[in-house]
Design a protein around this nucleic acid. Structure first.
Lengths: 300, 300
DNA sequence: CGCAATATACTCATGACGAGTATAAGTTGG
DNA sequence: CCAACTTATACTCGTCATGAGTATATTGCG
């Protein structure tokens, strides 16, 4: 088994939610995701990354999941013949790091993806984006129709609904159309903040994964404080999904799952009727997934 | 950015379905998954793997998806200090390779996981397995209760329903309990065929991923011939899921999706009323996913 | 006191899904 | 050539999850 030798590095997308804004940990003044070499000492990738993050941020990682491994040869550093393999991870942390020596910084997701936040309705950035996409679709007559349909589906235009999960598809479409700085576009407010190399693409992967995951696994609680109100929980989910939710139905859903329990205490941080405080029932099996079958089973 | 140098290899889980049996491509007489070093020439991992598989099997890969990257230091080959990074992929091919020089062989999934096929009811292998698991759970008094609940949930015992997606969790539980050969158990018919290193674990990951994927993405069609009947399609899905489906409801589901169209021809391979032949509508966007929201949206 | 703000508890309609039944159109064997 | 069997196809029905809307508690504050 003679295989090529390659550099191996880990890239982490660490996310926290503070005051209803989802944030990601960055370095280089928000230009890059934190990354580091794969070190010899660590038994597994997971455990290595865990200790590393804990050292860097001062906070433990509640949930850690592998995202994707990139090894395209054009990702090799300039001048090197050796290939670089980048293994990216998604991690959820409960709080932001105290703004220490200024090394790591936290930035809001939607600085990088202004078109992804639909909590206050369809973002204005989308008007300019749709224009740019339409121009791109029209520029190639033979593929024009297919492109238009793809755009409509991906961005929820015409009768297509907005699908919050398609974060990566949207970014890749914008990339293909040359509408983001990483693909050669000149900087524009609606195209969001650019990042080093393909880091913004990795961030898009992470957001997509998380948005889809919160629907069938109770990972949100890794972002919540010990005790929280139902509205706080809802606001956190809304921040991640970039959507407003229906309050009564959200409560009903949470009820049914039986994932949380009352602490007995009340919170009156917000100036209204005090809300009951809840806590996550850690006793619940983490496997607790509502396997929404989607297959027409027959029970024998 | 000085990172450790590592060996990089690709491991492929190639799956085809022939005569209602899902199979995986193997080497070494069914003992290992095909793998190879990451080569310099290839631009990306995907494209490299695609050409490699095409050369090896004579069939193009219809669908290719990255599974997981392992880099645990105990995976390094004996005597080497260098770490090995294994990147595993799931690939779907339409037909089996012609049994050529005998190099690659195809083996049924359920040789390796006899407890996963529930098409003919609960497999008998599960009786012995449940016994073994119960003994393991009882052997540690302090964790006994938690283990019992985990076993019941994972294997669908007591009131818990069988969840076909938990393939990996089941294998890992059996591994933890020391009930598979890879974990030191002596060979037993109910524990399935063992594989080299952690290849059976990778296969479990692949099966789990595919079982979950067929529910929300039209990947089954990558395994079907050009034209097929609805029953053939159903049998293929059943083979993958390891479950029997309800025929009328299956047809209704397929109808609604509008993923296929009639060819106009009929098939009378089976000795009954001839069935209409269908084909997959490739025109349909691959993104065509029924985003089953699971979040209590509010439409503004 | 009355109003604003938040929390909490309902009701209602629709539609997806599990389950079962009925009818059509061929093949096979006495 | 008819009867039995096999497979295909078309319905119906009840239940429950989900989207949507409305009504009723509790608090703080001017």
């Amino acid at each position: 088994m003679k295989s090529e030798l390659a550099h191996a590095e880990l890239i982490a997308v660490l996310t926290a939610v503070t005051s209803d804004a989802p944030r990601v940990m960055t370095v280089r003044a928000g230009e890059a995701l934190p990354s580091g070499p794969l070190e010899v000492g660590h038994r597994s990738l997971q455990s290595g990354l865990r200790t590393w993050v804990h050292e860097q941020t001062g906070h433990p990682v509640g949930y850690l999941e592998q995202l994707y491994t990139f090894a395209d040869s054009d990702r090799a550093p300039q001048g090197t013949a050796t290939r670089t393999i980048s293994i990216s991870y998604l991690g959820l942390v409960r709080e932001q790091a105290a703004p220490g020596a200024g090394v790591p910084g936290w930035h809001g997701w939607y600085e990088y993806f202004p078109w992804e936040d639909h909590r206050e309705g369809r973002p204005k950035a989308l008007a300019a984006i749709e224009e740019g996409l339409a121009a791109w679709a029209g520029s190639d007559r033979s593929r024009s129709e297919h492109r238009h349909r793809r755009i409509a589906f991906t961005f929820g235009i015409d009768k297509a609904p907005w699908n919050e999960d398609l974060v990566l598809q949207r970014y890749e479409l914008l990339f293909e159309a040359g509408l983001v700085v990483e693909a050669g576009a000149s900087s524009a407010p609606e195209s969001g903040r650019a990042m080093f190399a393909d880091h913004r693409r990795i961030l898009a992967t992470a957001i997509a994964r998380l948005r889809s995951k919160i629907k069938y696994r109770p990972v949100v609680f890794e972002l919540m404080p010990e005790n929280f109100t139902l509205l706080q929980l809802q606001r956190t989910v809304e921040a991640l999904a970039g959507l407003k939710l229906h309050k009564p139905n959200f409560r009903r859903l949470i009820d049914q799952q039986e994932l949380i329990e009352e602490t007995g205490e009340l919170s009156n941080e917000a100036g209204g009727r005090p809300a009951k405080l809840f806590r996550y029932r850690r006793a619940i099996l983490d496997e607790h997934a509502i396997s929404s079958s989607r297959l027409p089973l027959s029970r024998n």
